[in-house]
Design a protein around this nucleic acid. Structure first.
Lengths: 120, 120
DNA sequence: ACGTTATATCGACGTCTGTCGATACGACGA
DNA sequence: TCGTCGTATCGACAGACGTCGATATAACGT
């Protein structure tokens, strides 16, 4: 289930007014990124040549227990940042590129130089 | 004092390997964004016509106590997302655009379409 | 059917974090 | 100098979060 709906357009943080409910949704996604283990998981998956990684290969590099890694993958999945594909006994994770792009646009307008303050 | 040093280049999450210390630093900044009150503060400041807002005008709209707002502003400041300028009795806050741009680049390569997966 | 392996869920624990009231600090005006 | 106002810090508390071991679920091979 998808948590966020900022797919519409641009820059909720830097433009227009951010309502409390919208802020809550945005914060949920940032919360998913606010952990070093999850950032490294996301990094390992996104840098994989095939674009997907078996969950079994994600436990050792993080130095955490298997339940902990499974928990973090669930958080990333529920934030809409990862997709999970079960094939036989294994689960293959891949990044959901849309959500990352949405977050990037939420952080600021494309590339205005004075940027966030002098937005036109 | 600045927490992060991703100013060098691009896309720590989507490219190359993210070391544990780097992940820790990145997570610190995302943690600053992982709260709805702070997101709204950032939004109010960045959407201000002058680009800066007096702290006194940030308390009421958030619906939180003055100490709580002061705490959140400190978190954003220490994450390098805000600058504080004391003028007389008042403190004027403005966004530090660099840090936001760094975060955006950390979230993904410029605009590769298949993006994070097929980064080659 | 059985054991093995991969993954997810559960329950518990310690720590971190958002929140507030009370208070300290600092600047301004009378 | 004294009171007032804006801001930051302190101390305390409740709730959220990362972590683990134990266990459940499910798929595969023998």
């Amino acid at each position: 289930m998808n948590i966020l709906d900022i797919s519409g357009c641009c820059a909720p943080v830097a433009r227009s007014t951010l309502s409390e409910p919208d802020a809550e949704l945005l914060a949920t996604v940032f919360k998913a990124l606010a952990d070093p283990v999850r950032l490294r998981l996301l990094n390992m998956i996104s840098t994989s040549p095939t674009g997907e990684v078996c969950a079994c290969d994600l436990v050792a590099p993080t130095g955490r227990s298997q339940p902990t890694v499974s928990h973090h993958l669930k958080v990333l999945r529920e934030a809409g940042l990862l997709t999970a594909d079960k094939r036989g006994s294994w689960v293959w994770y891949a990044v959901a590129p849309d959500r990352l792009a949405e977050l990037r646009s939420a952080l600021g307008p494309a590339e205005l130089p004075g940027a966030v303050g002098s937005a036109e």
